[in-house]
Design a protein around this nucleic acid. Structure first.
Lengths: 183, 183
DNA sequence: TATTGTTATACTCTATAACTATA
DNA sequence: TATAGTTATAGAGTATAACAATA
């Protein structure tokens, strides 16, 4: 049996909930209910992220590589420019080059020059890439369904509403900042 | 004004909600309400993570480095072994060595040999490290409070409940797997 | 001039295996 | 034998700046 170094119990939550709650009080603005929510968000993300990463480990792809491949696949014959990928992935153009390079090396996508705008490089999925996706996504989606199956419709809706609310709140911060910067 | 390559609008959500919803139907187990919940979780985490990372960029610390420092600081005079850090951070012991090394280089923590068990290396925070934490954490906690201020008590509780539920569901998977592996 | 993509570089984080020393 | 920590190595991901080609 393979040695498992990583612990799968919720040690971290126990640790934090025990100690941080009191410790943080020395900071004026520390507000435990807020902090608790963010900690839960981060830890749950972390656990989910590791779980899905292990689900696709056998493909040799990371979660973001699969993500890119998925995006490109969805663009169909049209393909996807580096710029689009950069926007969607929140990754710099410089790094998109590297990410696409690694997929090209694995023969999962190919680059094509655009005929309309010769600055553009268009990325399309290969047969190989499609086959890989088709071999991975079914169990991926099944797993999402299984994990979410314990949530009621109401809970799922609440979760979505709250997460969107938090996200938009942050976007608003940056909008405001942009405005004041340009004035 | 500094050029901003990263977009702060919710391009990704728009993109996905438009396309994925239909695209995914070709997969048998694709269940949009489940997928939507996970996408929201991932994107919101991502946005929050980037936001807080930018908040502490001036310290030269990454979010995980700050996290380690925070854990060590909370252990007070007692200090923290590498093993403890490894468990709490879900990071291999090998990598804890590297992470602690980089904090030692910055004079934020120091190592001490344990007198009871000479295998152990105990990590303690330095004056320098404490000062850094005190200069960063107040605004960090204030920001959490601000961001969560739009959520009602009920929403926060619901969010926590749901996130914990999801996390424990995954932990249970691994517990079951462990059991069957040892049989 | 602005945009797209590339190159180069450096740093962080992660994963793995082999090793030392202690228990 | 098991545990704690280290070393070495390789790869993914990110951040930044300078650059060429094209619009």
């Amino acid at each position: 049996m393979k040695k498992i170094e990583k612990k799968t119990e919720d040690k971290r939550a126990i640790y934090y909930w025990d100690r941080l709650q009191n410790y943080g009080r020395k900071y004026k603005w520390f507000h435990w209910p807020s902090v608790e929510a963010f900690l839960n968000l981060v830890y749950t993300y972390d656990v989910i992220s590791n779980h899905f990463a292990s689900k696709i480990q056998h493909t040799g792809l990371s979660r973001s590589a699969l993500n890119i491949l998925n995006i490109i696949s969805r663009s169909d014959k049209k393909g996807c420019t580096h710029k689009e990928l950069s926007d969607l992935l929140l990754v710099s153009r410089a790094n998109v080059t590297g990410l696409v390079d690694s997929l090209v090396r694995k023969n999962l996508v190919k680059r094509q020059d655009s005929q309309h705008d010769r600055r553009l490089s268009i990325v399309k999925i290969t047969k190989n890439g499609e086959e890989l996706l088709n071999s991975v996504l079914p169990s991926y989606y099944l797993e999402m369904r299984r994990l979410a199956s314990d949530l009621s419709n109401d809970e799922r809706n609440k979760l979505n509403d709250i997460l969107i609310k938090l996200r938009l709140k942050i976007f608003d911060l940056y909008k405001d900042k942009k405005k004041t910067e340009s004035n």
